[in-house]
Amino acid sequence: MGKALIIGAGGVSNVVVHKCCQNSDIFEEICLASRTIEKCDAIVAKLPETKTKVSTAKVDADNTDEVISLIEKFNPDIVINVALPYQDLTIMDACLATGVHYMDTANYEPPDVPKFEYKWQWAYRERFEKAGLTALLGSGFDPGVTGVFCAYAQKHYFDEIHYIDIVDANAGDHGYPFATNFNPEINIREITANGRYFENDDWVEIPPMSMKKTYDLPQIGEKDIYLLYHEELESLSKNIKGIKRIRFWMTFSEKYLTHLKVLENVGMTSIEPIDFEGQKISPLHFLKAVLPDPASLGPRTKGKTNIGCVIQGIKDGKPKTYYVYNVCDHQEAYREVGSQAISYTTGVPAMIGAMMILKGLWKKPGVYNVEEFDPDPFMEALNENGLPWQESFDPILLD
């Protein structure tokens, strides 16, 4: 049905490649590209037998001309961006220049300051519309599946949605004293930024990690959850009708938070460059280099993730509550594709988003977030591709 260029060669990319190859009727040919081609070759070397034709290439995703050159050489129908979020605009520019559809899993981030905003990518709407191209933003799990969950609830169960709590819980244990389950730089930037949530048509900002609750989650039990700002709040607050409040919560252990606080206190989480032996270096970049590579955590990690949405609103004039979620087992994910559940829960929806575009189901000129499309085929594809979802109409509500 089509050809996909996949840019990036980390743990998420590994899942995307495996899942594309499991759907060879959709992904007839893929090219995996990264600054370090050896990482691409290592992923491809571990693929099971597939009908999908797979190749690798070297590309610097910070260089628009290099990306354009590779697109012109490979001639894909879609570019799947699972590189760093700093490179989103470079790759979007290359897609516009070559007439190719685009999708990613995370919003553009300026390298020098954490923003977690869609404004830079939303500014591309008119250009993608005029080019007749689709740009799908944030097709991971959160953002991604959580937005599809909300759209599904809005379509099938509510006349108005008033409250949404997104809860991202990881009960996995990798055995290290301190490590991050995805890119350390992005992970730590998220956690150390001020918390923020949308309420009564305005944004409420709070100090980092200052709002904590305990929540009992299916299959993993009671966990401490902390309020963070996450980029899907920005798009969902615009696209879900009737919304009065939307918040995002994530689990952290006391051990993790203690390590993080010490690192923050000694300046290791700063993105401001410092002078070190005659050169400029960001402490967070250095910390990323010494922490375990998230892609290496797969064989060590045991336990499960639970990510979902607790939703309250009105149906036929009556209050209604709804909880939709997925539970993913780290070891099962690793046995299937060689990556732990954090990468798996992001990589599978990335493949599905690309599939939606290649099938023509989510193919519309412009720049869109996932919740702006029909959620039904995406929800069906989750069940068919390793991320089955469950629902409850009697959830425990978060105050």
Rank of each mutant, 00 (worst) to 15 (best):
G140N: 04
I26L: 13
Y344Q: 05
C21K: 02
V16T: 04
E254A: 11
K302G: 09
M356T: 05
D159Q: 10
M211A: 11
L228F: 02
R189L: 08
G338K: 05
K261Q: 15
M209A: 07
S237V: 03
K318D: 02
W203M: 10
K51V: 05
V54K: 07
I71M: 07
V148L: 07
H330F: 09
S69A: 15
P388R: 10
P208I: 00
M1T: 06
S270T: 10
M356Q: 14
E391F: 04
M351W: 05
A153D: 07
I78Y: 00
T134A: 09
G10V: 01
I243F: 01
G2L: 03
T345R: 14
E232Q: 10
P299S: 07
I311H: 13
Y152L: 12
L284M: 13
V54A: 09
G242I: 01
P48H: 11
P377N: 06
E391I: 10
F276Y: 14
D142H: 15
G366P: 01
E380V: 06
K244L: 06
T50A: 12
N265E: 15
D93Y: 10
Y152Q: 07
Y215E: 04
E190I: 13
P388H: 12
Y344A: 09
L382K: 04
H18A: 12
M355C: 03
D41L: 14
V44F: 05
Q340G: 09
K320L: 14
D293Q: 10
I396F: 03
D293N: 11
T90D: 08
D173M: 10
A4W: 02
W203T: 03
I352R: 07
V100T: 11
L5A: 03
L136I: 07
Y256D: 08
R127M: 00
Y118D: 06
W122C: 02
V67C: 06
Q219V: 15
P184A: 12
N14M: 07
A131I: 03
V290M: 08
W389K: 09
K363H: 15
G8D: 09
G132A: 13
A381H: 02
A179C: 14
Y152C: 12
K363S: 12
